[in-house]
Amino acid sequence: MKICCLVKEVPDAAVQKRLDPATKRLDRSGEKTLNQFDTHGIEAAMQIREGGAVEVDEIVAVTMGPDSAQRALHKAVALGADRSVHLSDDALAGSDVCATGYALAKVLESESPDLVLLGQQSDDGECYTIGAVVADHLKMPSLTQVIEMDVAGEKLRCERQAEYGYDTVEIQLPAVISVGDAINEPRYPSLKAIMGAKKKPLDSKATGDVGIESDKVGEAGSQTQVLAINPPPEKQAGEVFEDEDTNETVEKIVAWLDERKLI
């Protein structure tokens, strides 16, 4: 079985984020880190390999991003991926979800994976969509927010918490699975793995290498555009009062709740 793990470099959660007023997109300068949710994807791949139910020939980390994204690949490899693929091209800059999903699907196509794993969301605001976009392009079945996954032959048995409770779904390989953070506890990379990460093969690919049509990616290929950035609506300063007569206080609270249709 060949597993591809999609990983993404995102601004570190601890860094105060800001929007670049010029491009109206997330200012991605400053510290970046491997998207924490993607580490769960890599861990899931490692657990399949170590579980022994199926033989895993290769775990490949795949990312789309500028040069700095290689750091995310090094981390992914330190966590256990055998090699990595870096899709990088100026033409890809400014891609929205539609364009990004298409581009990732093309690079994954060139790898022909049996299973694609990724984190269900990332700290930079994107959530629950890339997996499904990629899967449709690849013509593979897909599931998101998976918190439990078992491999049995050519099938996966997955669990996820949907609108009405827990769904158990059987899905045939090849498939694209987006995992939630409850699925596993990612391991820490050993120092040996960290030191050896740069030596593992890293293939850089440009759009032409994997058949990406440039009019479908980048700013030009994006189907959404940010029109404006506004501060959040002014929250009316709330009323604060002292509890002098508890019965009255409680009446007041209940009236307030009622007014807002909360009871």
């Binding site: 506890e185 391991r187 990379p189 050993s190 120092l191 040996k192």
Partner: peptide, 22 residues
């Protein structure tokens, strides 16, 4: 190098990774 994956009281958590001699 230092260990990773210890809990508040120093015990080993599920993803405990010992340090290495360099």
């Amino acid at each position: 190098s230092g260990d990773k994956g210890r809990g508040k009281d120093g015990g080993q958590l599920g993803n405990f990774e010992p340090g290495s001699d360099l």
